[in-house]
Each structure stands twice: as structure tokens, then as C-alpha cells.
């Protein structure tokens, strides 16, 4: 369908662009309206996380085909300070930026697969996948 594409996350406007790109691809591969909304919302949370905590980053958007059903995979990465305690960061209500602390824990509930890799000083990479039903 389409090759993986990478988008920068450097400004508030970029977050909006990420949302729009994710939505159009999610619709293209046939995600239900609710699932489209979930993955776009997760993308919005994760893109903002990269912007707020790491001063920016990028997202790789990839359409997964070949399996029984198509899927959409998003890889958010940044070169920020990283997360010292990943388990704690995934706890609901835990926040460093004065937010609601729903960014990570909430996004995890909105997708089918969620993977977070991070270490202090080495940036953060969050991979999320949503499959069409």
C-alpha cells in the first residue's frame, strides 16, 4: 500500500500533522471508526509526550500487511533524557510534566500492542500497533 514514512515532532503543529496522517492511514486500511479514534488519540498522546519530555522527536508510521488482517504500527522515538523507571511511568496518574499522567498508561489501553524501551540518557522509544478487526 505505502512505504513507511517518518514525520518530525518538533512543534505543536507537528502533533496535529501526525494525528491527521495516522487518521488517514487508519481509515485506508479499514480500521473501524472507534479503532481509528483510539489509535489517533494514542498517537496524539505519544507525540505530545515526545515534545514535552524530550523537546521533540519523530514518528515512523508503517502499514503492516501480509497477515490475516492489516495493521498500523507507530514508532515514536526521541533523544531526550529517557525514563529512569519504566514501570512507574506506566502507572496511572504518574506525571512529571504536570499533566494528568494518562499519556502512557492511557495510550497503552487504546492499542493492541504496546512496547516501551527507555533508559536514562538514551532517549525513549514507544512502539504501538493496532490491528483491523
Amino acid at each position: 500500500m505505502s512505504a513507511p514514512r517518518e514525520l518530525p515532532i518538533a512543534t505543536n503543529g507537528d502533533v496535529v500533522v501526525v494525528r491527521q496522517q495516522v487518521r488517514s492511514l487508519a481509515a485506508e486500511i479499514g480500521l473501524s471508526l472507534v479503532d481509528q479514534t483510539k489509535i489517533v488519540t494514542a498517537a496524539s498522546e505519544l507525540a505530545r509526550n515526545a515534545l514535552v519530555h524530550a523537546g521533540g522527536g519523530r514518528v515512523l508510521i508503517e502499514v503492516l500487511e501480509g497477515g490475516r488482517r492489516p495493521g498500523l504500527r507507530l514508532v515514536f522515538s526521541d533523544d531526550g533524557p529517557g525514563i529512569p523507571d519504566v514501570d512507574q511511568a506506566l502507572t496511572e496518574g504518574w506525571s512529571t510534566a504536570g499533566g494528568l499522567g494518562l499519556g502512557l498508561s492511557g495510550s497503552r489501553r487504546l492499542v493492541d500492542e504496546f512496547d516501551l524501551v527507555s533508559a536514562p540518557g538514551e532517549g525513549t522509544r514507544v512502539t504501538v500497533t493496532k490491528w483491523a478487526r
Binding site: G106, R109, L110
Partner: peptide, 14 residues
């Protein structure tokens, strides 16, 4: 509020 938005908010925990 659209149904899909409401369902997502509930899942998000908001």
C-alpha cells in the same frame, strides 16, 4: 460528543 470519542475517552481513563 461523538460515540467513538466517548468510547476512547473511557478507555483512556478520562
Amino acid at each position: 460528543m461523538r460515540p467513538a470519542v466517548a468510547i476512547t475517552l473511557v478507555e483512556l481513563g478520562l
